[in-house]
Design a protein around this nucleic acid. Structure first.
Length: 220
DNA sequence: CACCAGGGTGGTT
DNA sequence: AACCACCATGGT
């Protein structure tokens, strides 16, 4: 079957570099990672912009911010009460641990453990922060990746299967490639590998077992 | 109108 | 361990 590096090359050729997270600071990436949870990036970006205008894209400001003010600013990102609490918790952690500078000195495994201890930061958000904020060689295993790999391989895919798929890139410390791969997997999953798939123009069609097992009704 | 978007938590079976 | 309701706005 297809290797991770082959998948990257193929998707890169079709969609080009995605340019995710060209953020100004690691903390801004952390805020974005929370704001985008179960939300379109467009709406998360609106909330980020409002925080920036209010001068709140710093941990000292958010940690000390009145929750009601924060809620109002991030409203476009949805789940605003939940996310406001989460942002304050994240900011408070960063403030109490010497800022993102000090955090960047931790080993990846230890930093991941710390992030997972924060309320509102699960495996996916932690890995997105590790990858895009702290530039660690980690692959973000989300619903898109599992669905795409599941179809490529023709079987149900779990976290272990995804880890095996990207092991070479992770072990080689290929942060840039892992970041681009994740972004491309999301884009490809939106355009073709959707819950209701559009395989006709898919660039992976020849290397995917899904069309063979596709039981959808034939187009009229 | 329904459905989805770059999830996580807490509770129930 | 697998499911579930909940959180909430904006686009299609």
């Amino acid at each position: 079957v297809l290797t991770a590096i082959e998948l990257l090359e193929r998707l890169l050729g079709r969609y080009g570099p995605q340019g995710w997270w060209p953020a100004q600071s690691a903390f801004e990436v952390m805020v974005g990672a929370v704001l985008v949870q179960r939300t379109s990036w467009l709406n998360a970006a609106r909330a980020l912009e409002r925080l920036d205008e209010a001068g709140l894209l710093h941990w000292e400001q958010i940690a000390a911010c009145d929750p009601a003010i924060l809620e109002g600013l991030i409203r476009p990102a949805g789940f605003f009460r939940t996310k406001a609490r989460r942002l304050i918790g994240v900011a408070d952690y960063v403030r109490g641990h010497g800022g993102t500078e000090a955090m960047s000195r931790l080993m990846t495994g230890e930093l991941r453990r710390q992030l997972l201890g924060l309320f509102g930061v699960g495996a996916e958000t932690a890995d997105a922060i590790l990858l895009y904020a702290f530039e660690r060689p980690v692959f973000v295993d989300d619903a898109y990746a599992r669905r795409l790999l599941g179809r490529l391989h023709g079987r149900k895919t779990h976290a272990h299967d995804v880890a095996t798929f990207v092991r070479d890139l992770v072990d080689a410390g290929e942060t840039r490639k892992l970041a681009e791969l994740h972004a491309l997997v999301v884009e490809h999953s939106k355009q073709h590998c959707r819950s209701s798939p559009a395989c006709e123009q898919c660039v992976l069609r020849a290397r995917c077992v899904y069309p063979a097992t596709d039981t959808r009704p034939a187009p009229s």
